[in-house]
Simulated assay, not measured.
Amino acid sequence: MSATRRLALAALALLPLRSRAGAQVEEPLADSVRSALSASIAQAAPPKPQFDDIEARLVYLRWLGEMSQRMKKRMPEGQTRIEFLQTVWYESRRAGLETSLVLGLIQVESGFRKYAISVAGARGYMQVMPFWARLIGDGHVSRLFHMQTNLRFGCVILRHYLDREKGDLFMALGRYNGSRGRAEYPDKVLACRRLWLMPGER
């Protein structure tokens, strides 16, 4: 391979990866909703799971081991993979979401790429649109590439859409993707969700 080609490939590797995911649509938020979402984003807490008993801790450790094995090809570096999974587990539960659903959504939205950017400008693992940083964050769009920030925003936004749709997951997923009412995106996420269920789960 020529030196010029190597340099070109190296330069391409530094560019943000494009995603074909959709985009949330900016909608007016009531002041009370904006305040609640801002508070939920701002509550600083590291993804350190706490358990009431040893059995709950063992269930979590079995989940972490199983998911880590499944994700090896997508995230070969062990420490990165474990930190990612711990954070997904923490943030999904914090928002009252099923962890396998969040993993399925990330698979569809970004293919587990931290620096993915869609043609609409959505960023990171959960493809959060920049306007959310202004509406409920501190306005710093670049922070949407920070792992925990991105996962927290994504989980809080999905929870918000679920609440708006009165628990209708199909419609909430469509709203998350900016394709509300169309089946293609919810069907993809729910199909990918099944790949992240533990043995015996449905």
Rank of each mutant, 00 (worst) to 15 (best):
C155N: 11
V108G: 06
S118C: 04
M75F: 12
Q127N: 02
C192P: 00
K166N: 14
S118G: 09
Y125F: 15
R94C: 09
R180G: 00
M171H: 08
A172G: 07
L158P: 06
P76V: 15
E91N: 06
P130F: 08
V102K: 11
V102P: 02
F153S: 01
R94D: 08
F112P: 10
E91P: 09
K72M: 13
Y115N: 12
L85C: 08
R180W: 02
R193A: 05
T80H: 12
Y125K: 01
S100L: 09
G139Q: 05
E83S: 09
G124Y: 09
V141Q: 11
R113W: 09
Q148T: 12
G111V: 12
S92G: 11
G78H: 14
C155K: 03
A183C: 05
G96Y: 10
E98G: 06
A122D: 08
V119T: 14
Q86A: 08
I82P: 10
R74F: 00
E77F: 13
L85N: 02
R159F: 05
M126K: 05
Y176S: 03
L135S: 15
E165N: 13
F112D: 08
G154E: 06
Q148G: 03
I117V: 15
Q148N: 12
V156Y: 03
R123F: 03
R182W: 13
E83N: 12
K114I: 00
H140A: 12
R164N: 05
A122F: 06
V108E: 14
A191Y: 06
E77D: 14
S118V: 07
R94V: 07
S92D: 02
Q148I: 15
G121M: 12
N177S: 07
Y176G: 03
F112R: 04
R70M: 05
P186L: 01
F131W: 12
W132S: 05
S110H: 09
G174H: 14
V88E: 07
G104Y: 14
D138C: 10
M126H: 01
E83W: 00
V189R: 05
L103T: 08
G78M: 13
F131C: 04
Q148Y: 01
P130W: 07
V108N: 01
E184I: 09
E91R: 06
C155Y: 02
Y115T: 06
H146A: 14
R164C: 09
K72Q: 12
V189Q: 04
V119P: 01
T99V: 15
V108F: 00
Y125Q: 09
R93S: 04
S118H: 04
A183H: 11
V141T: 11
K73A: 13
Q107V: 00
Q79L: 13
K188G: 03
I136G: 03
L135C: 05
Y161R: 13
K72H: 01
G124A: 05
E77Q: 14
E77A: 10
V141P: 02
